[in-house]
């Protein structure tokens, strides 16, 4: 129901979603992005707000396992979905991608890191599905050019790119 004769247009909605395996239900102003919902309402501040316009990738989360910019998703539009943030990757031990970022010193200030890590995990799943890229149409050898293309939606202003690429290459089992 969009309009109610008594109260006028409904400007808020009830959203139910699974956040890192835990059910959440809350009423949100329709203007709320998933990013703001996570940070301001659900105290999940691991996901970072960089540009807030889908250009930097700092807000990358996994929606039903797929990477997406949470700053461009309205919270109402992810009703019923499974959201995984950087806080949901650990299972007692750090996720292998988190461990590899530590081992390779794949960050300086760390602001882009949660988005980089979520994006890298989503990217490797896409690779396992056989998805092509602008670099390689056929069977993919995950070399540095391939990693850089597939990770181009994540910017790092400290330019830790060489170490980010090395960390991802290690997790992917490449050379």
């Amino acid at each position: 129901m969009v309009r109610n004769a008594m109260t006028g247009p409904e400007l808020s909605s009830t959203v139910r979603l699974m956040l890192n395996g835990a059910p959440q239900e809350l009423t949100v102003d329709n203007r709320t992005t998933l990013l703001d919902l996570l940070r301001d309402r659900l105290d999940h501040t691991g996901t970072k707000k960089g540009c807030d316009h889908g250009q930097c990738g700092a807000c990358t989360v996994l929606i039903d396992g797929r990477r997406a910019n949470s700053c461009l998703l309205l919270a109402v539009a992810v009703d019923g979905r499974e959201v995984t943030t950087v806080e949901g990757l650990e299972d007692d031990e750090p996720h292998p991608m988190q461990a590899a970022f530590l081992a390779h010193d794949a960050f300086q200030c760390g602001y882009c890191t949660p988005g980089q890590i979520c994006s890298a995990i989503g990217m490797l799943d896409e690779l396992a599905e056989g998805w092509p890229s602008a670099v390689t149409a056929g069977p993919v050898h995950l070399d540095d050019a391939e990693i850089r293309e597939r990770m181009s939606g994540n910017l790092c202003r400290c330019a830790a790119y060489p170490n980010i690429v090395a960390a991802i290459r290690e997790v992917a089992g490449g050379d």
Partner: peptide, 9 residues
């Protein structure tokens, strides 16, 4: 076009 994150959406 775009990035992996945007193409997914």
């Amino acid at each position: 076009g775009a990035s992996g994150q945007l193409r997914n959406v």
